[in-house]
Write a protein that binds this DNA or RNA. Sequence first.
DNA 1: TGACAGTAGTTGGCGATACGAACTACTTTC
DNA 2: GAAAGTAGTTCGTATCGCCAACTACTGTCA
Lengths: 160, 160
Amino acid sequence: MVTTKEPLPGFTEALVRLAHLVQQVFDEVAKEHDLTPQQAQLLCLLIDGPVGMTELSRALNLEKSSLTGLVDRAGKRGLVARTRDAHDRRACRIVLTREGERLGGQAHDRTTARLEALAGELPQEHRDLLAAAIGGILAEHASRAGAQPRGSRVGAEVKP
Amino acid sequence: MVTTKEPLPGFTEALVRLAHLVQQVFDEVAKEHDLTPQQAQLLCLLIDGPVGMTELSRALNLEKSSLTGLVDRAGKRGLVARTRDAHDRRACRIVLTREGERLGGQAHDRTTARLEALAGELPQEHRDLLAAAIGGILAEHASRAGAQPRGSRVGAEVKP
DNA sequence: TGACAGTAGTTGGCGATACGAACTACTTTC
DNA sequence: GAAAGTAGTTCGTATCGCCAACTACTGTCA
């Protein structure tokens, strides 16, 4: 259908600004807990349970070598630990220490609280719609990334 | 402190995921243009015209010393240049070079295009709602942080 | 006018990020 | 059971980002 393609400049602009705002909130919260943003993100990802390096690198959108360093430093601070995988002797699973669990949980709750506060004026129905709309965008992205036929390289999108 | 109420876990979760997605898109676009994400962000900020270091550091949420290095490296790559301020001999204004303008514009357009594409399936109604809701969140944040009647123009984001 | 507080930006040192290439060790495939 | 693939690490390099200290200029006020 030939809709008058009006990109609506305010829309993507809003998305970008929102991303920056969320990042800023997250950075502040991390700093309050004496964590780097990357460490805080790592801890939050591990709250649900141990995760292997490869899956972590996908979730964090990081090269595996970058992740090794991140986990090393977090381990040195006593936030996480490596455990061997029972089924694959090459692999390891990263788990939160008691301290990591505490800090990660706090960081998560505090970030959530701040974002909730910022969105406090929104009526519940708008929130639901908003969450649904975002869900749609995420799904769209997932369907594209997942549509990779058999590209050995992740993140290798359409190159110009 | 544990929030006694369970406001709606899906909402902030969605916000955070959206922020990550936008960041990921931005990172990919930057890489396609052989820019670091920070450089790309800098270029996008300068599209509207020259900006001083102090205002830049506010917009990018960076310490001034961090910004000096960023501008140095971008300058070394021929993307930006320093010009002296006519009214204040301490200050300088950062301007895009021809190449910086080209790359910054491309990065901006490409990011916008990708985000538009991801949101392409959303009904217009949801887009408007999303943009409005985000605007409200941003306003809420601005009213908190920006309690000062500073003439601090936003300008903190990509070109309008 | 002339000391003096304030502002704009830089420098230097440090640790944290992030990547790619090369490597080890283990698993799967044929 | 050799080849191919996968999970993580190591290494070298560039970048990022902060803080404290510094230079240079601007504005104020006595």
